[in-house]
């Protein structure tokens, strides 16, 4: 290979991130004889599982005060049952040192979700993690109401706007995460942006409401009546902490 070839910029390799589901063997007791025996039992139950299965050996769950672990022997026991150790998971210095001596990578104790694999597992573990489901759409289409909203009725438009094209009687309640539009006499209560959306607005063709609220800031009829726009077509929005009523 000439010097010129070494300078060839075409990439020889690529580094990629990957998600792998892998079996973890959590060692509870430093008892290799019993491990050997119990692994034999497991192999008898699910022989296909133990065919050169990649393994992470977790030593961080070992009972404290155990005698010195013979990592080499432990690896041999696993290998004899078809379990090939890729790395160990450890937090004790001596375990880490032992792993490094054997040229085994050390993984930190992780909080990754781990499923205990039952005796019925015959197939290899799930090869790849399923991609995350796309998040639920947060915005829903506008809810449109065309019949009069009578006293005692409550209409809630989650995740969107509410549009009412008929009169809203006193004692009726309109709620929305978004805006509320009432293109008819509005004599009831309207609560917009109830999940805290201070940008929500309320529109009325005739302002005669009992209560108007945007993201929790409200005004009752007593205050609203004093507004010169009472009975007119208005648009209400929140400016800072105050409800502003503007003529449409």
């Amino acid at each position: 290979m000439s010097h010129a070839d070494l300078l060839d910029p075409a990439p020889v390799f690529q580094l990629k991130g990957s998600m792998l589901a892998i079996t973890v063997l959590e060692l509870a007791h430093n008892d290799l004889a019993r491990l050997d025996h119990q692994l034999s039992e497991k192999v008898a139950q699910a022989p296909n599982f133990f065919q050169n299965t990649p393994l992470v050996l977790a030593l961080d769950k070992l009972q404290p005060g155990a005698q010195r672990l013979d990592l080499h022997a432990l690896l041999a026991v696993c290998r004899s049952h078809g379990l090939r150790t890729l790395a160990i998971r450890a937090n004790l210095a001596e375990h880490i040192a032992a792993a490094q001596a054997l040229d085994l990578p050390v993984l930190p104790p992780s909080s990754a979700r781990e499923r205990p694999i039952g005796p019925g597992a015959t197939a290899a573990p799930v090869p790849a993690k399923k991609p995350e489901k796309p998040a639920e759409p947060l915005v829903r289409p506008t809810r449109v109401v065309t019949t009069p909203v009578r006293g005692g009725q409550q209409i809630y438009a989650p995740g969107g706007d509410l549009l009412v094209l008929a009169p809203v009687s006193a004692g009726a309640e309109l709620l929305a995460d978004g805006n509320i539009h009432v293109y008819a006499p509005m004599r009831g209560r309207a609560l917009a942006g109830i999940k805290g959306n201070g940008q929500a607005r309320i529109f009325c063709r005739v302002l005669a409401a009992e209560l108007l609220s945007i993201a929790g800031r409200y005004k009752v009829a007593e205050d609203l009546r004093r507004d010169p726009n009472w009975g007119e077509a208005v648009h209400i929005h929140l400016a800072g902490d105050v409800l502003n009523i503007t003529r449409l």
Binding site: T147, P148, V149, R150, G151, G152, Q153, S169, A170, G171, A172
Partner: peptide, 13 residues
């Protein structure tokens, strides 16, 4: 009138 309004809502629902 208010009670009749409530009753109308119940008749519809």
């Amino acid at each position: 009138v208010r009670d009749s309004d409530r009753m109308l809502g119940l008749l519809a629902s």
